Structures are given as structure tokens and as C-alpha cells.
Computed example of a mutant assay.
Amino acid sequence: MSLKKKLGLGVASAVLGLTLVGGGTYAYFNDTETSTNTFAAGTLDLTLDPEVIFNVDNLKPGDSMKRYFEMQNTGSLDIARVLLDTSYNVSDANDNNGNEDLGEHFVVKFLKNEGHPESWLDNDEYTVVEEISLADLSTMTPDDLAVELEDFLFWDYEEDGIPAGGTDYMAVKIEFVDNDEDQNIFQGDSLELEWQFTAEQEEGERR
């Protein structure tokens, strides 16, 4: 064999070796496993029953109204706390209120039922947890009010919050205060009260 042919075979062998090295090692036995993972978020859902707590007309100073409502946790996550934000709007029928605010003449009394839940609707054993005018209530931040009402919210549970599927029973009384003075400027006026309840989740946990 000539030197030229020998050199040609040598080059071909070298190229083949590089191809095998470059292609890597191939395993004829292999096994593949697939992990399919799912992350689903829960729901935080606070429901008020009834949604309209007060709807009263033809009021006069000295009248009071006690109402009951439920805060239901209809979501899948526990509720850690509920914040209450208050706002209201006064319609002055005769444009003669001047600097007088009808909201200062309405007092809200948050009540705690000291009886048994099964007799909630007809039980008169109540303790006033907090008493505050609508005017002052509307200036409080939800966080500050939560501190004031810590004995009112979630009284039905050993720990704060409403567990998923649970219900907290509330009672509140609003009084149109008779201040023994002339309150004629409020005749025909109306007050629209908006309470916004905001439920917050519990802190995250290791799962």
C-alpha cells in the first residue's frame, strides 16, 4: 500500500474518531419520569345577611333601632379579621342645617350577646361594647376601629376570625339622640349610611 493511501486511511480514521467523541455517549437503556404539579388558590368570601341592616324612615329624636346581622365565611379560607369602614351622606331637606351635622346626633352602639346563640333573636342580654357617634365613627381608620371593637367582632369564637364555613352573629343599635335641645333643623332630613366590611386572610403558612 502506498504512503498516499496510508495517509488517506489515517485521516479518515481520525475523522471517524472525532465524530464518535463529538456525538457523546448514548445509553441504550433509559427511563423517564414526569412530575405534574398543581397549585390552586383558595377563596376569601365574606357574606352579609342581610345586606341592608337598617332601612328606617319617619324617625324622631329619641328613637332607637336594634338590628341583627350575620357575617358568613362562604369561602374556602379562614378569615383572620374583618375591618369596618364607615361613611355617610346627609340630605338637608330645608337647606338650614348650617354647620350642624346630623351624623353627630346618631349614636352607634355595638352590642355583644351574653346569652346563648340559639336564642339570639329574642335574647335581651346584651352588653354595649362600644358607643360612638356616626360622625366620629366615620373619621376612624378601619385598623383603629378594629382595636376598639376587639370584644365585638368574633365574640362567638375562642380565637379571632371566622373559620371557613363559619358564621359570626352581630347585634348593633343606632339611636337618634334626643339632646333636650331644639333639633327642628333636621326635620325632613335623611342620612345614608354605608358600612364596608373587608375580610382579611390569615398569615401564610408552610404547606
Rank of each mutant, 00 (worst) to 15 (best):
S2H: 07
S2W: 01
L3T: 14
K4E: 09
A14I: 05
L18I: 15
L18K: 02
L20R: 03
L20W: 07
G23N: 12
Y26S: 09
A27Q: 15
F29N: 15
F29E: 14
N30S: 15
N30H: 14
T32F: 12
T32N: 13
E33I: 12
S35Y: 12
S35N: 14
T36S: 13
N37H: 14
T38I: 12
F39M: 13
A40H: 12
G42V: 04
T47Y: 09
L48R: 05
N55W: 01
V56G: 03
V56I: 11
V56Q: 15
D57G: 13
N58C: 03
L59C: 13
P61K: 00
D63Y: 07
S64R: 08
M65Q: 12
Y68E: 13
F69N: 03
N73L: 05
G75K: 06
D78N: 15
I79P: 03
R81N: 15
V82G: 01
V82T: 08
L83F: 09
L84F: 08
D85M: 07
D85R: 10
D85T: 15
S87R: 10
Y88P: 04
G98W: 06
E100P: 00
D101M: 00
L102R: 02
H105P: 03
H105C: 07
V107D: 06
V107C: 01
N113G: 10
H116W: 04
P117G: 02
W120E: 12
L121W: 09
D122P: 00
N123E: 06
N123T: 09
E125M: 11
V128Q: 09
E130K: 12
E131L: 04
I132L: 06
S133P: 01
A135P: 05
D136R: 04
T141H: 00
D144L: 04
L145K: 02
A146Q: 07
V147M: 06
E150P: 02
E150F: 06
D151R: 08
E158D: 11
D160E: 11
I162L: 06
P163L: 06
P163A: 05
A164Y: 00
G166F: 01
Y169R: 15
M170S: 10
A171I: 01
V172K: 05
I174L: 11
E175H: 00
D178P: 01
N179Q: 11
D182N: 13
Q183M: 08
I185Q: 10
F186G: 03
F186P: 01
D189V: 07
L193P: 04
T198D: 09
A199S: 09
E200R: 11
E205M: 08
